[in-house]
Design a protein around this nucleic acid. Sequence first.
RNA 1: UGCCUCGUGGUGUAAUGGUAGCACAACUGACUCUGGAUCAGUUUGUCUAGGUUCGAGUCCUAGCGAGGCAGCCA
Length: 634
Amino acid sequence: MSNETTPPPPPSDFIRDIVREHVAARKYPKIVTRFPPEPNGYLHIGHAKSICLNFGIAREFNGQCNLRMDDTNPAKEDVEYVDSIIQDVEWLIDGWADDKLGFKPAGKTPEPQTVNGKPDFYLPAVVGKATPHPNPLPQGARGSSTSSPLPSGGEDQGEGASRLEPFYASDYFDQIYAWAIELIRRGKAYVCDLSPEDTDRYRGSPDKPGTDSPFRNRSIDESLDLFVRMKNGEFPDGKCTLRAKIDMASPNIWMRDPVLYRIRHTAHHHTGDKWCIYAMYDFAHCLSDYIEGVTHSICTLEFEVHRPLYDWILENLDLPRPLPHQYEFAKLIPTYTIVSKRKLIQLVNDKVVSGWDDPRMPTISGIRRRGVPAEAVRAFAIGVGVTKFNSVTDMAVFDHAIREDLNRRALRRLAVLRPLKVVITNIDPHHCEDLDAVNNPEDPSAGTRKVPFGNTLYIEQDDFMENPPPKFFRLKPGGEVRLKYAYIIKCDEVIKDAGGKIVELRCTADLGSKTGGPTSSRKIKGTIHWVSAAHAIDAEVRLYDRLFTVSEPDAEGDFKTHLNPHSLEVVTALCEPSLAYARPELRYQFERLGYFTLDPDSKMDPPRPSDHKPVFNRTITLKDTWAKIEGKQK
RNA sequence: UGCCUCGUGGUGUAAUGGUAGCACAACUGACUCUGGAUCAGUUUGUCUAGGUUCGAGUCCUAGCGAGGCAGCCA
């Protein structure tokens, strides 16, 4: 885009205020955040807010943001999700914060070290863009940014350096295990033989204190022995757990001797069969942050009550480096969709949608496939702000961000979704001329193109009404309308089939009304789009609409009862011939209709353009003032 | 009836003791060879009650309301 846009002011919010103070006080040598998804589903628009927050802070304060798989539950996780997460994050931050993305050399695990005489584990990141990994993005998906050489220095990958990959909590299992042993040695953790049901019972309830486990005071040596045997696979799933020894009477349930490790004889997507005990989130997460040198561990509000536990674990291990701290913000909940991985996976499994990347899904991959540029997602995710207030965000705000971006970048094209034949009787059937059409009125540098015109055209069925209501500025019997880039025509005759359906319009053109012609400046209220019947090409067009009919489908009852039965309509559109050369990385506006992008299902490879089979997704409609007027008239 | 957190137009978000502003939405109008875009304008708000203060959305007290927490999920 050649349009110059002034960059928006850097965001400000309560978390950035805290970071700014820390920077001013030189509390940390470098600000380190992290984005830690569990690979148990695809990333969605809610994650986009978290990504923009964590990477945004990294770029605004010259820090880094590590991508880490929070993979401590092998039963729910899968490499398919790992791969999609990497692709989605890279797509979303490309050209924006990709130079702040913290990865690590593949296979690398934390180095044991000694700091101030104390044992420690640390795994620094390799920060930079152009990271080779096994899941290259599809052609064109990364936009136009080019890789720049990394700065020379200690962090340089160098020539022939090993492949990089995200961090994995599962890469720290050895270290986390060692810290568990340390906690037991310090009398701060014990192996508990209570069954899952009894553990529940002993925990009490929010308003009633729990009861000490009968195993709470067993000897350190016994717990140590039992824990090693847990790790060695001597016990079946659920037989016992490792628990922190805190306070069963705490008003905070998460401080009532929380489980730190459970037994799961399940293979892990990243560590294979090496482990049969897995750390719980609370134990693994804070220590993973510490290992990576994270300074600000930013998560959503539901983890607020876990923060005392986060701090307790770190503070009870006598760790030598600065400890990370947790900060919480309210997650993004847009209207007319759902952002719950558990429910999104239902839509996928029940085949309500074609997959995680169905353009109707609120997933990053679905949004990408629908044609929304990463810039628009970021503008939205940043624009909603960061607070601790639980809120719902009107989907119209996202729609607006998409239109604002696409209006600037999209190439204008003529296409007719539901064709109605028009014959211009005062133009010779063999007549053919090429008319000049503007590619983008918002961007003169996008230039012009030729659009063929003849005496037989197709217009949109909606653009003709035999008995129109007031204020209908389109074609009607005896009425005039301008054909965009062409002539003013007048409707003389309406031809119907035996069933009374309108099948053709016979019109006359004002031959002097073409651009530059003597009558071209006549004031005609309506301008409509068209394609030449002799030159138009077919394209499958997928018209997507919101997935749900109500603004908060998750509010009560079964969200699936609110599915929009018209969320997808497929039509065969007639397009101006230049769309045979459509490219997947470009965005198109079909004039007066909306923004469209080429779907990966398209076949644009055949050598002859006439063999191309484009498939377009409607990213979003244009704002439709007429629909609003029409709605009110009814 | 435990603990934690949060209450600013319809929605989201600013104002850090000093004119309640911005965006989206809605509604007018202008302009337009996209009923798009653009431009101009209008409507709508500090949960309640006390208190401190020259002055309170902001500080204090009490109330009301909302959300989160009782996985060997994250």
